[in-house]
C-alpha cells in the first residue's frame, strides 16, 4: 500500500501542472485537429465529419509549400541577424565590471514595456518616404529623392530583429554570466591571446545560450503575423497570414485549422531537434 502511494505521489504533485497543460494546450489543439477534418460549405457553415480534403489541399498545393518555405527562410535570416547582433551587447553586459549591469539589463527589457504593434509601427516613422532616415539623408544631400525602405522583405526582417533581439541577448547573457572567469585567466596564463581565449573558452561555453536564443527567435519569427502586415508589401505574406486569411477573411475554419496544425508540426519538429541536440532546459535558465 505504501509502495503504491509512493508511486502515485509524483503524479499527484504533477497533476495541477498536467491539468493546466491539458486544458490550455492539449484540448485546444485537439479541437483544432478535429476541425481540420471538417469542411466548409458554400454558405459558410461547417460540415462535420472525417474529410481529408483540407489536408490533401494543404499538403499538395505548392502555394502553401512555397509560403511555408519562405516563412522558414525569413525566420532563419532573422535568427542569424539576432545571433550576430545579439552576441555583442550580451558579451558587453556580461563582462562589464561596472555597477551599471542592472541598469543595462533594465534598458534591455525596456522595449517590452511598449506594445509590440507600436514598436513595429515606429519603423514607419523612421523608414518612410518622409520618415527620419530619408529626411536626414535628403537634408545632408546624400540622396536626391526618398529611398524605398519600407514594405518589403527587408523591412519585415528588420521589424522581426527589432522585436526578437532582447530574447537573444538575454539568453546569451545568462550563458556568459555563468562562465567561470578563472577559465579565461587559465587560458591566458597558458599563452592564449584574448581572441583565442574567446574562441576556445567563452564561445563554446556560451553556445547553449546562443542555441536557446536562436530557437526562441526562430519559432517566434516563423509564427509572426503582425510584422508582415504592418511592414510588408503585397508579396511578403508569411504562413500565419495564410491562417488569418483562411479563418477570418474566408471564414474557412477547417482549412485554417489544417494550416495551423502544419505550422505547429513544423515548429514542433524544430523544437524536438533542438531538444535532442541541446535540451530545452537551457531556455528556462534564461528566465531565472
Amino acid at each position: 500500500m505504501d509502495g503504491r502511494a509512493s508511486a502515485m505521489r509524483p503524479w499527484l504533485l504533477l497533476s495541477p501542472a498536467l491539468a493546466t497543460v491539458t486544458l490550455l494546450l492539449v484540448v485546444p489543439v485537439m479541437f483544432i485537429l478535429v476541425y481540420s477534418f471538417w469542411l466548409r460549405t458554400a454558405t459558410g457553415a461547417d460540415t462535420s465529419g472525417f474529410h481529408l480534403d483540407n489536408w490533401i489541399e494543404v499538403l499538395t498545393d505548392p502555394f502553401y509549400r512555397d509560403i511555408l518555405f519562405k516563412t522558414l527562410r525569413i525566420a532563419l535570416v532573422t535568427t542569424l541577424f539576432c545571433i550576430v547582433l545579439g552576441y555583442v551587447p550580451a558579451y558587453f553586459i556580461a563582462m562589464s565590471r561596472t555597477g551599471n549591469k542592472t541598469l543595462l539589463l533594465l534598458l534591455l527589457i525596456l522595449p517590452f514595456w511598449i506594445s509590440y504593434i507600436i514598436r513595429t509601427m515606429s519603423w514607419i516613422n523612421i523608414l518612410g518616404a518622409s520618415g527620419g532616415l530619408n529626411s536626414l539623408l535628403l537634408t545632408l544631400g546624400i540622396i536626391s529623392e526618398p529611398m524605398r525602405l519600407l514594405y518589403n522583405e527587408g523591412s519585415v526582417i528588420l521589424g522581426l530583429v527589432h522585436f526578437l533581439l532582447p530574447f537573444m541577448v538575454l539568453n546569451v547573457y545568462v550563458s556568459l554570466e555563468a562562465i567561470d572567469r578563472n577559465l579565461l585567466d587559465a587560458a591566458r596564463s597558458l599563452g592564449a591571446s584574448d581572441l583565442q581565449a574567446f574562441r576556445e573558452v567563452t564561445l563554446p561555453l556560451s553556445m547553449p545560450g546562443l542555441a536557446a536564443g536562436a530557437l526562441l527567435c526562430f519559432v517566434l519569427s516563423a509564427g509572426t503575423y503582425i510584422t508582415p502586415v504592418v511592414l510588408g508589401g503585397p508579396r511578403d505574406a508569411m504562413f500565419a497570414n495564410l491562417v488569418f486569411d483562411a479563418i477570418i477573411t474566408q471564414l474557412d475554419w477547417p482549412l485554417g485549422s489544417a494550416l495551423s496544425i502544419v505550422l505547429l508540426v513544423v515548429l514542433g519538429s524544430v523544437v524536438l531537434v533542438y531538444n535532442r541536440l541541446v535540451g530545452v532546459g537551457q531556455i528556462a535558465k534564461s528566465f531565472g
Partner: peptide
C-alpha cells in the same frame, strides 16, 4: 462567388 473569389484573391495577393 464569395468562397471561390476570396480564396483566390488571397493567393493572387500573396504572389500567385
Amino acid at each position: 462567388h464569395e468562397a471561390e473569389w476570396a480564396k483566390q484573391y488571397g493567393r493572387v495577393e500573396a504572389g500567385y
